[in-house]
C-alpha cells in the first residue's frame, strides 16, 4: 500500500467497503474524486451525510422515507384497500417502476431465517397485522421471493392474516418474451402449479 499516500489509502479503503466495489473500482473512484473540483466533492460528501441523517423509515409502511410518512402512504389518489407486502425497499422501487400497482405497500425488512437469528419479532410483522385489520383493507398481496426463507415467511403471514383479510400471493412463472423451451424446469414447474382458468376478457 506504499503506492498510496495515507489519505488516499483511507478513501480507497472506505470505498471498498461498499457492495459491488472491489479494489480496482475503489481505486478508480478515489482517483476520480481527487480530480473533481472541491465543490463537487463537498456536494457528494454532504449528500451522503444528509441522506444518512435524514432518511429513516416511514412509520406506516417502513419504506425508506425522509418524512414520518412516506409519499406513497400520503398519496390520497392511491387505493388503500390493498397492501402489498415486500421484503425490502428495493422491491417497492421495482414494483413502482411498473406503474401498474396503485395500492399501498408494507416493507418487512427481511425474511424469517433462524440461521441469521431472524424470527417474526425482528421483522415489521406486528404493524402489518395492525394495518391489515383496519376495516378498509380488503386484500393483502404477498410479494416475497420464492426462496426457502421467503416461502416460509409467506406461509407464516398467510396463517397470521387469513383469519381476517383476503390474502393473495403473486404468481411465479415465465418471464415475458421468454420461450417456453428456454425456461428451466423449476420455473416451468412453478408456472404449471400456478396455472389458472382461461377467462374471456
Amino acid at each position: 500500500m506504499t503506492a498510496y499516500t495515507p489519505p488516499l489509502a483511507r478513501l480507497i479503503e472506505q470505498l471498498q467497503k461498499l457492495p459491488g466495489v472491489g479494489p480496482k473500482t475503489a481505486q478508480r473512484l478515489a482517483l476520480h474524486i481527487l480530480k473533481q473540483s472541491e465543490d463537487d466533492v463537498e456536494a457528494l460528501a454532504q449528500a451522503i451525510l444528509a441522506a444518512k441523517k435524514q432518511v429513516g423509515f416511514c412509520q406506516t409502511c417502513f419504506h425508506l422515507s425522509a418524512d414520518k410518512t412516506c409519499p406513497i402512504c400520503r398519496d390520497q389518489q392511491r387505493d388503500n384497500k390493498t397492501i402489498c407486502v415486500v421484503t425490502d425497499s428495493r422491491d417497492v422501487i421495482a414494483l413502482e417502476k411498473t406503474r401498474e400497482y396503485h395500492g399501498k405497500y408494507h416493507v418487512l425488512g427481511g425474511v424469517i431465517s433462524p440461521m441469521d437469528g431472524i424470527g417474526p419479532d425482528q421483522l415489521n410483522v406486528q404493524p402489518l397485522v395492525r394495518r391489515a385489520s383496519f376495516p378498509e383493507v380488503e386484500e393483502v398481496i404477498l410479494a416475497i421471493s420464492p426462496s426457502v426463507e421467503g416461502e416460509t415467511t409467506t406461509l407464516y403471514l398467510g396463517q397470521l392474516l387469513r383469519p381476517f383479510v383476503r390474502v393473495t400471493q403473486i404468481a411465479f412463472g415465465l418471464p415475458m418474451g421468454g420461450d417456453l423451451e428456454y425456461a428451466d424446469e423449476v420455473t416451468l414447474a412453478r408456472a404449471l402449479e400456478g396455472r389458472r382458468e382461461l377467462v374471456n376478457s
Binding site: 406461509l155 407464516y156 396463517q159
Partner: peptide, 17 residues
C-alpha cells in the same frame, strides 16, 4: 405460542420438501 407457530412453519416445510 409464537415459538410453536415458528416451529410449525419449519415442520411443514420439512414435510413438503
Amino acid at each position: 405460542e409464537g415459538e410453536k407457530m415458528q416451529l410449525a412453519l419449519w415442520d411443514s416445510q420439512l414435510a413438503a420438501n
